[in-house]
Write a protein that binds this DNA or RNA. Structure first.
Length: 503
RNA sequence: CGGGGAGUAGCGCAGCUUGGUAGCGCGCCUGCUUCGGGAGCAGGAGGUCGCAGGUUCAAAUCCUGUCUCUCCGACCA
């Protein structure tokens, strides 16, 4: 036993030393100076990318991070894309308070149970001890429910369709920027409906909106499904989820939508007088997506040179880099400025005219930040009335005549968006396996999505976790085929499930 | 929360074993020369060594505590 633990420790530390060596070697080879290659240390790669791309910084408090402008801008694009769709489906934005009195938080039994371990409490106002402690919201079902019960009296008040953009706090044990932080930004929708059917439809409709935004804007392919009971939101009847596959083969739950039945309506007394004169409980839903999506964006599209931004959410879509000095330089700069003005109406353009850096430095710099298109303008191009365009997604360089530049840029931005989605889809397709026994995932290093049968028992879900480290990510809404037997116990399968190791 | 690793200039690190003037590379500032894939030379600025105690004539170095980051588990968007 002693020998075993010793060798384990040794392996761990020598593994780390080995990684450091490899990393240094990579740096000497000038593969890339600032970013650890994915293949050497994925976690380190992730941290390097977000820091070198100037997306976040750590704060003095554990688990809290600063979102710097370059990542916050991405968040703003996500917000815009979602707000448009929320509004189109009749939702309105509102804002509910940050602090929730303890008695409210405790109204719904399963909900409290689910969140109690990670709630932060406010106990003092100034130096005075509060009569009742106040929870910093981990999510807002309770405070929203309490308010809704005041606002709703008649079926004519329904449906209530509200959304809020806010921060929430969950005291997490281990944190990683974007993926799991103690405080995070998100959007949470809360609705009340007259019938169960309507609430169910709402739940699915919002999941579909998430899919549109995540696939269409972030270029991240997702699998839509239903959570198993063990993975369900605390207090929900049914939780719908979108699962994405990261480039290290682990799954990320990227958005969820909950059908809450009448659980919260009963707990918070959300009742309405129906047309038939009887008092009924409303049917509620809630749905959320967070800055975690940005973490997904990084892990799905990033490569060893850094980020690769899908154009639709890229803070800078086109960077123009002048080449040359002296007399040439002046003409080049004039041309670049003119191009920046011209293209500014069709894309988010940045002219990098910093004199202190060479073009080569700038290429690397902007590639690290994932700018989709780079336009190079040098003396040669000036004479030939052309520019060189380099794509971040494929690395391809092409020469484009000035006359065709605006249309080409517009087309290429569209192509890069498609290509990133195509690459991610192809990867996911390649790394999705159908298995009949969960141990078969071992051959693939438990990297990827695994489709297998499930008998429906929580015991099997638990043993899966213990034996393979995988969890049931969801019961896909569109199962590919139905396995005859459970991948864990071999009994008759109830439905195909998606298995993976998850973030 | 358990177990590893790490905190020294903006970044990456050496120095610590054996206590005695704070170092290197990159970056930064100034000047000149450079510019089609991380430019060159010269000069210069920058650090209460994570924080708090303790030992000592003397602590980056030794001891205790604590905070943060990071990895692996357990718990979760």
């Amino acid at each position: 036993m002693f020998a075993r633990s010793t060798s384990k420790t040794w392996l761990r530390s020598s593994g780390k030393r080995f990684k450091t060596l490899l990393r240094r070697f990579a740096q000497l080879e000038n593969v890339l100076k600032e970013i650890t290659p994915k293949s050497i240390d994925y976690s380190q790669w992730y941290v390097d990318v977000i820091r070198k791309a100037d997306m976040v910084d750590y704060s003095p408090v554990k688990g809290f991070m600063v979102m710097k402008p370059y990542s916050y801008r991405v968040w703003e694009f996500i917000q815009a894309a979602m707000n448009t769709r929320f509004r189109a489906t009749g939702h309105e934005n509102a804002y509910f308070p940050l602090l929730i009195p303890e008695h409210l938080l405790q109204r719904e039994a399963k909900h409290v149970e689910g969140f109690s371990a990670e709630v932060a409490w406010v106990t003092h106002g100034g130096s005075e001890l509060l009569a009742e402690r106040l929870a910093v919201r981990p999510t807002s079902e309770t405070i929203v429910g309490a308010m809704y019960s005041k606002w709703i009296q008649s079926y004519r008040d329904l449906p209530v369709l509200m959304n809020q953009w806010s921060n929430v706090v969950r005291w997490e044990k281990s944190t990683r920027p974007f993926l799991r932080t103690t405080e995070f930004l998100w959007q949470e929708g809360h609705t009340v409906h007259r019938t169960a059917d309507e609430a169910e439809r709402e739940t699915r409709q919002q999941l579909e909106i998430y899919r549109e935004v995540i696939e269409g804007e972030l270029a991240i392919p997702v699998v839509a499904g239903v959570k198993s009971a063990g993975e369900r939101f605390a207090g929900a009847v049914e939780t719908y989820t979108l699962e994405a596959l990261m480039s290290d083969g682990r799954a990320l739950q990227i958005a969820t939508s909950h059908f809450l039945g009448q659980n919260f309506a009963r707990a918070f007394d959300i009742q309405f007088l129906d047309e038939d004169g009887t008092l009924k409980y409303g049917w509620t839903t809630s749905w959320g997506s967070s800055t975690r999506m940005i973490g997904g964006l990084i892990m799905v599209h990033g490569d060893d040179r850094g980020l690769r931004m899908p154009p639709r959410v890229a803070p800078i879509q086109v960077v123009i880099i002048p080449i040359g000095r002296g007399a040439d330089g002046k003409a080049v700069h004039a041309r670049c400025r003119a191009l920046a003005d011209e293209l500014g109406s069709i894309a988010r353009v940045r002219l990098d005219d910093r004199p202190e850096y060479t073009p080569g430095y700038k290429y690397n710099d902007w590639e690290m930040r994932g700018v989709p298109l780079r336009i190079e303008v040098g003396p040669r191009d000036l004479k030939a009335e052309q520019v060189v365009i380099a794509r971040r997604d494929t690395g391809q360089k092409t020469t484009v005549a000035l006359a065709e530049l605006p249309s080409t840029v517009a087309r290429l931005l569209d192509e890069v968006q498609q290509e990133l989605f195509r690459q991610a889809s192809e990867y996911r397709g390649r790394e999705t396996y159908t298995i009949s026994r969960c141990q078969e995932a071992d051959a693939h290093g438990y990297r990827g999505f695994f489709r297998g049968g499930w008998c429906g028992s929580e015991a099997c879900a638990d043993s899966l976790k213990i034996e393979t480290g995988m969890t049931i990510r969801c019961l896909p809404l569109e199962p590919e085929s139905n396995q005859a037997s459970c991948a864990m116990c071999g009994a008759t399968s109830r439905q195909q499930v998606l298995l993976a190791r998850a973030y």
